[in-house]
Design a protein around this nucleic acid. Structure first.
Lengths: 238, 238
DNA sequence: GCCATTCGTTGTACGATGTACAACGATCGC
DNA sequence: GCGATCGTTGTACATCGTACAACGAATGGC
């Protein structure tokens, strides 16, 4: 649907509804209210339009969400500089991906949930990763394995870091986790008990805030190096 | 809500509604229809009960979903055998986690989406990972970094591997991806183009089926070794 | 410069869904 | 036996996605 060959309404009073404006407004809605609370009526209200008007530009809600995700991660993949070390390229890619997510943390649950919308077949992204790994002398099955590892790691860490707590349960969740942590039994869980202060709110599963409020910067930096070490291991083996 | 000190209805004709039966039925519903299509009316129908009856045993829909996820991953963490190499322990944990997900692939989107429900503070799981890493001589900040890396990797890969395509769009999606792959330009995306046959349906973002239909066994096996190599790298550095 | 056509929006409507709430009956402790 | 409590029935409502039918405004052909 929608073949807007030219702006129809030159300048009535509203700035003319376009697919791009719909997506941009949707992203703004999600940023402000969260992905769960996102709905078409609020979106329409923001656009100053009836709810069903947006259906002219977009087939359905899911398409909007997919488009929003694609927008957030447009141009994450850095251009490959000739002669650039593949390690540096991966470092840059990981940092940029996380930076994009940090700008719009509320889209995190949308990214993790579906195959659809996972970087919707962004060939530049794929080629970026593959090119780096090819430079690391990976080919064939090892190239595939390396690629899947990088993508899984990249998306996995960041999605989990920034996935938000459902707003309605935020306070209860916070104190529930904190209380739970006080009940750790040093007999049955010695390492956890011994490292509680270090882990509390700084480790997956043991957090009560997400990456927006309690970013895992140090862990992520280390994670990138671990991923690279994993690739080094992969290329070293037969 | 719900302090069933004893089975109230001994054996009228229905087998008595309990929290456990509600969760089990919810899991069955999700297995059959997918997480998106899950709703309380179908759940109630399966239980032979009015929709609002389940509210006696469970506060709301989200709680059901969280409980379902917890059920699927109950006892994923293997017991730590004394003297067992930490590498072997991690290998086992990774394989068991994936096996659990494979049994109930439709819960994958629930796992990825929210902090809540992420292995809902299963201390045994946490202690398992921490214990293995402590055996690898990690402590302090490096222990935290290793733990976060392992959890992110573990959940990230498997969630993405098994996250299902929304059923309604399955066929269109499949052919859309396949067609898209035929348009790859070897000039701008040489590595991708050269490896298309290897990557098609076997690599993230380039798939049209999920892990239930096209499992990434080889990639996952390699991934586990890469994670371990990452940990080795972490312990080696200052 | 008029008019049929197409585009984009306004309105209306409906079915699905989560869940609040008030009966109401069955069961159990006494 | 009887009152309190537990668990279920039944009703109701607000919210949401989206189908569908007008309807008006810009446009291009004449």
């Amino acid at each position: 649907m929608a073949k807007p060959r030219a702006t129809r309404r030159p300048a009535a009073d509203k700035p003319a509804l376009t697919r791009e404006r719909v997506i941009a407004a949707a992203l703004a809605e999600i940023d402000e209210r969260g992905a769960d609370a996102f709905n078409l009526r609020n979106l329409a209200e923001r656009l100053g339009v009836y709810p069903t008007a947006v259906y002219w530009h977009v087939p359905n809600k899911n398409a909007i969400l997919a488009e929003v995700v694609a927008t957030v991660f447009r141009d994450v993949a850095p251009r490959r500089r000739s002669g650039e070390d593949w390690r540096d390229y991966l470092r840059k890619l990981f940092q940029r991906y996380r930076a994009s997510m940090r700008r719009h943390p509320n889209v995190a649950p949308l990214v993790g949930a579906h195959l659809v919308g996972n970087l919707r077949i962004d060939f530049d992204f794929v080629e970026g990763v593959l090119g780096a790994l090819a430079d690391a002398d990976l080919a064939g099955a090892r190239l595939v394995a390396g690629y899947n590892a990088v993508v899984a790691a990249l998306i996995g860490f960041v999605v989990q870091e920034f996935s938000p707590i459902p707003a309605t349960e935020a306070q209860e969740w916070q104190s529930a986790v904190q209380q739970r942590l006080l009940t750790v039994d040093p007999q049955t869980h010695p390492v956890l008990a011994a490292n509680l202060p270090l882990l509390a709110n700084q480790a997956f599963v043991l957090r009560w805030q997400n990456g927006s409020e309690a970013p895992l910067d140090a862990s992520y930096r280390s994670f990138i190096e671990q991923v690279i070490a994993g690739i080094e291991h992969l290329r070293a083996q037969g």
